[in-house]
Design a protein around this nucleic acid. Sequence first.
RNA 1: GGGUCGUUAGCUCAGCCGGUAGAGCGCCACGUUUACACCGUGGAUGUCGGGGGUUCGAACCCCUCACGACCCACCA
Length: 888
Amino acid sequence: MTDTAPRQPAAIPDRPSLEGLEEKWDGVWSEQKLYAFDPETTRDQVFSVDTPPPTASGSLHVGHVFGYSQADMIVRYQRMRGKNIFYPLGWDDNGLPTERRVQNYYGVRCDPSLPYDPDFTPPQEGGDNKSAKAANQLPISRRNFIELCERLTEIDEKSFEDVFRTLGLSVDWKHGYQTINAHSRATSQRAFLENLAAGQAYQSEAPTMWDVTYRTAVAQAEQEDRDRDGAYHRLGFTRTDGSGEKVVIATTRPELLPACVALVAHPDDERYQGLFGSTVTSPLFGVEVPVLAHPLAQPDKGAGIAMICTFGDANDVTWWRELELPTRSVIGRDGRFLQETPWITSPEGQANYAELAGLTVFSAQKRVVELATESGDLTGEIEKISHPVKFYENGDKPLEYVTSRQWYLTNGGRDGSEGGLRDELIARGRELTWHPAHMESRYRNWVEGLAGDWLISRQRFFGVPFPVWYGVGADGETDYDTVLTPSVDRLPIDPTIDVPEGFTEEQRGQAGGFVADPDILDTWATSSLTPQLAGGWNSDPELFSKVYPMDLRPQGHDIIRTWLFSTIVRSHLQQDALPWKHASINGWILDPDRKKMSKSKGNVVTPIGLLEQHGSDGVRYWAGRARQGVDTAFDEGQMKIGRRLAIKILNASKFALGFGEAPADPSGALAADPAAVTDPLDRALLANLAEVVEQSTTAFEDMDYARVLELVEPFFWAFCDDYIELVKERAHGNAPSGQAGADSARAALAIALEVQLRLFAPVIVFATEEVWSWWRGGSVHTQPWPVAEPLRAAAQGQDAALLDTVAQAAIVVRRLKSDAKVSQKTPVLSVTLRAPEAAAGHLEAARGDLMALGRIEALEIAGGEVDAISTEDAELGEPPVKQPRNKG
RNA sequence: GGGUCGUUAGCUCAGCCGGUAGAGCGCCACGUUUACACCGUGGAUGUCGGGGGUUCGAACCCCUCACGACCCACCA
């Protein structure tokens, strides 16, 4: 591959250590461009990854380390399988989090009405005052604001990159992208314009969920339920038939009483049959409204009859639309009650409403309840309840319905027809290979539950602008049906600065001229294009054809409904393709000690701190033990185990390589000559290893790195504790088998060690590379993934069970000494090993190694009708004289 | 209300096609052994959430209940 300058093997250090390996190898890999994508390639040679772009203005946490490590393991396996890896990493620096961070850091705020100042310098640098008042922030133009964003995210992104490099991610840093830079803006705008031309993007004036704090519309995917205390208020409406009878409704939103447009009950509800078609007047405001029937009304909820207001909830919107009711909005975009309510005509009603105008929703509710209590219209008890309320996921006030003109993109939410877009998108989900498979149901669940198309416009300043203007009629009114678009080669544009073709800046806002669309695209509308952004859809068609559709999308399950779904929507609309073949869904990190780790002690666990404490290999091991999609405890114990494993790899390798040179493999396929492996025990080792290789390969083909670790790790510990212990005397040449025995052991050790390094390499990236450098050329990470065949051939048909049988015998011999509470060094003058008939043969084959291991002077092996290996007639010698350990 | 996942040793988790339960940590005991004290050796520990069923045989398959987590819907 790109291993341009193979390293020369280096000497084995006296005391191998993990310290400093991250920095050392990151430097070498970076210098050698080990992970660079090779553009001279064809699609079938490529394995491409659509990596999640971290939010640059946020902070990295253990969840990132977890998920990115897991994806990296899959990528590294594919690289070893000879794939040309396209593994870019982008930064999501588009959107509210960046907007807020830039505001606080530089003490500015965006005002799109201001002109660009090319000589602008920010009033401050490095501020982090979260409570900074907007009034103290210097208003600047959108272009200046975006420049500051790019400046700050560059700083943030560098520090993130350092963490990821330390972690050992084999990302090709040359192929990064930012979701707010010119390339991304152009890509996002081009995709939008194509959607517009294809009729997939459209504008609509309709009630939408609105966040009053951020003053922007919010899409369904960004909403979440939160339980809030509320209360049923019973309010009496008066019949207009002169009877004076009251119709009592129950509502949790009494402040919306002035927005009431009708009452509604279920058509079959006997209690209200006589009312349907009549009218009632609202309390306090005296507005006459009809009583209507609609099947959506639930007889068992509240009073069974509801007031319809414009708008309290999704049902109100449905009723309003289906019953063709008037719009009587009372809540403005700032969340305060509006001044104008022309439908309230009675003096009394106007006086009551005057008390509400200008109030927040919260205060208005309080006031309405007071007024209704005074007037006696509030009847019965106020019944407190707890109920779910919709919030913007970043907001802290409930969402309100506000009628506004917005842009939408089709996503199947309004096309549930047979074979329609929704069905097509569900089929895309089926087409995708999910890891784990059950995650598909989350996707399907979401798509099936969509309530409308994707609302992609946001009334914010920082982001990708809608690349459109609207014509202004001769009457000076904006004509939203006249959408002016730029030619694609002008992208990216900012319509508040740029001018549509055929117009001049002087015509901006003038009759017969044009106005800019002031809105920006939802950040997901840009990040849903990550395969197109990273793959160069808008800039490098040749690259795009080689990497798209991508092979893998790794991500968390929390953003299946947002990122994963929206990416499928865009690819489906844009390329008529599934954006990737596989989706690997990682779980959450559950933190049992969250309280302990946070503010009180001030010792918040940062990723870089974990990497320093446990080593990147240790942390990666923890991530590698967790299966895909499974929520995992934050467990430093696992990291310690991983660290121990990495250290063991260093030490055991040093030992195994220290017995002396093994005969070289003439074919070069293995680390030593397989023909030299003649001893049955050595052959059994390779037979076992062949099995591990085979099963690991199967597991990795299914992207199950956790299973691979589960196979390789126990093999390695058995290799250290049993195999090496058994053969070390022979490998030193101290056995009666002499040079042939030593060569066999040394060859088996070298072959097995080298294969194990490659098996571990995707997870334990630093320790394996370190050991590799001691005696092999190049990098372990660009070696071929091992195959079982040459190992099996070297085993020469040897029964793999021999190794385990001898290990069992080693345990019983060690137990002799352990039970006698003496050193393992104590000689056994004589012992009989009783074993099942088949096992006895195996023990006989390894007699020499077994005697050396147990320091057995006279060994009898007796086959018989027994279940397990046991010792008989053991006679221990004198324990060795203790000698003080005199190590430097 | 619909859906998904989970419940196995004190803890974290494996357990593949159903063949009678495993690892690591922790614990106990022992030991410095020509790699490793960031160590080694040996040991103890389970009504596999409950109940039913299928089967010669169930942690595993089916039904059911309970508990936990998450997603969606509802939200007068």
